[in-house]
């Protein structure tokens, strides 16, 4: 009892101090948005909204892909967004890839097919840095897993551009972002109202764009989420039933002791 009281006393004494310092840091925590892929207790019923994924992909294609690669995603993966085989072939065919060597030993260009990965905007990291004032635009295939609280963070970043505070020392090509560590972000605000045309009547606002691209990127980082959660549900139901049976077996086994 004494130990427990000491424990709580220490926790209570430390808690307000530590929270004061946590908020004392000048990069705010990204606010939590409500996402369809996180629905239910612990995100248990979360699913991807295919229409949002398609809109997000459109934004990636028209805006992000001019600087950011997504080299772990293949055109064939787009099936998960609700496209059929012919649509995927048509999308891939808009791109050319270098292939080879052919029988004569030469490299050649051909149109992309569904088994190709997304085409990177730059040949290599150095080319990407050179074109972007020395900053490397990260590959986006895993971005929501590679950042703490990834989906909320990317949303906060895209909507977090602000006027730089007075006295902030921004170098050329840097932009003030509330949620970026150190605030000086080399990426110019990538999205603005009305920039990408939606055919389904969804509002063409920065917030909506950001929501859609985040859902697309979350899918890209975690394409098996729906299968995982579905399997998890079955596994847990099975285990809980099994546990119930084993509880009865254990009780019964031990019942005959004196």
């Amino acid at each position: 009892m004494l130990v427990r009281n000491i424990f709580f006393a220490v926790v209570l004494a430390v808690a307000p101090v530590s929270s004061a310092f946590a908020s004392g840091g000048d990069t705010p925590t990204p606010p939590s948005q409500s996402w369809q892929f996180e629905e239910g207790l612990f995100g248990m019923y979360g699913t991807y909204d295919k229409a949002a994924l398609q809109r997000g992909y459109k934004i990636y294609r028209e805006v992000c892909s001019s600087c950011h690669s997504m080299k772990r995603i293949y055109f064939r993966n787009l099936e998960a967004l609700g496209y059929n085989e012919n649509q995927i072939k048509a999308i891939a065919a808009e791109y050319t890839v270098e292939d080879g060597p052919n029988e004569e030993g030469d490299m050649f260009d051909r149109t992309a097919i569904p088994s190709d990965a997304f085409i990177s905007p730059f040949a290599n990291d150095n080319a990407a840095k050179f074109a972007n004032g020395g900053a490397l635009p990260p590959d986006l295939s895993l971005i929501t897993k590679a950042r703490a609280n990834g989906s909320n963070y990317v949303y906060a970043l895209l909507t977090g551009y602000e006027e730089a505070p007075h006295g902030a020392d921004l170098a050329q090509g840097q932009h003030w972002n509330k949620y970026f560590a150190g605030h000086k972000l080399s990426m110019a605000p990538p999205l603005m109202d009305g920039q990408v045309t939606y055919e389904d009547g969804t509002p063409e606002t920065l917030e909506q764009y950001s929501r859609d691209i985040v859902q697309f990127l979350t899918w890209a980082a975690d394409p098996h989420m729906e299968a995982r959660k579905k399997a998890g549900f079955r596994v847990l139901v099975f285990l809980i039933l099994f546990a119930g049976i084993m509880y009865a077996v254990k009780k019964r086994t031990w019942a005959d002791l004196h």
């Binding site: 612990f42 248990m44 959660k229 998890g232 285990l239 099994f242 546990a243 084993m246 254990k250 086994t253």
Partner: peptide, 20 residues
């Protein structure tokens, strides 16, 4: 029997992390 029952309870928590 007791070990199996305890093990299943442990696996339930473990499975929660694996899947969710």
């Amino acid at each position: 029997m007791k070990d199996i029952f305890g093990l299943i309870l442990f696996i339930i928590v473990y499975a929660f992390f694996v899947f969710y």
